Simulated assay, not measured.
Amino acid sequence: MSPRSRTTVTLPDDLLAHARAVAPGGNLSAYIEHALRAQQLRDAALALQAWRVRAAREAEVEEFADIFGEDVA
């Protein structure tokens, strides 16, 4: 288990009420941790996709340079 830190977060009343109502066993911290981890994965997926697009473009430029024998960048 990783170290834990206490923090304060301000949320709209309706969102907080919903989270409290659906938190498993009333554990709001676990519910919010789950939501943040899910967002963390989505953020990582977006970063990975951007990296793949850049890598593919760099590979295309290298391929054109090999074909045409010059710097096409």
Rank of each mutant, 00 (worst) to 15 (best):
R20Q: 05
V22G: 04
W51Q: 09
V61L: 05
D13V: 06
E33W: 04
M1F: 14
F64I: 14
R37W: 04
A59C: 03
D43M: 13
S29D: 10
M1K: 12
N27H: 09
V22A: 04
D71T: 07
A73M: 00
A19Y: 08
G69V: 08
D66N: 14
L36I: 03
D14P: 06
R6A: 06
G25A: 07
A23M: 02
V61H: 06
P12A: 09
S2R: 08
A50F: 00
F64A: 08
A30E: 05
H18D: 10
L48I: 03
L36K: 01
I67H: 13
R57Y: 10
Y31S: 03
I67Y: 04
L46R: 14
L28Y: 01
A50R: 08
E62T: 08
R4G: 11
Q39L: 06
T7H: 03
A50V: 02
A38S: 11
V61C: 02
E62S: 13
E63P: 00
R6G: 04
I32K: 02
A23N: 00
G26F: 02
Y31D: 00
L15C: 06
A50S: 07
R42E: 07
G25L: 02
H34T: 13
Q40F: 09
E63S: 10
V22Y: 02
A65R: 07
G26H: 09
A38H: 08
A65I: 00
L41Q: 15
H34W: 03
L15K: 07
L36H: 00
P12H: 14
D71N: 15
G26I: 01
A47G: 04
A59F: 06
Q49D: 10
R57P: 02
A17M: 08
G26C: 06
R57T: 14
D13Q: 12
D66G: 10
T10A: 15
A65Y: 00
V53H: 11
S5C: 14
A38N: 09
S29I: 02
G69R: 13
R6I: 11
N27Q: 10
T10Y: 14
D71A: 04
A55L: 01
V22I: 14
E70Q: 03
I32V: 15
G25I: 04
R54N: 12
P24I: 02
A44I: 02
D66Q: 09
Q39I: 03
P24K: 01
D13C: 04
A47V: 01
R37V: 04
A47I: 10
P12E: 14
A73W: 12
F64N: 09
A23W: 01
Q49I: 12
L11K: 05
L46I: 12
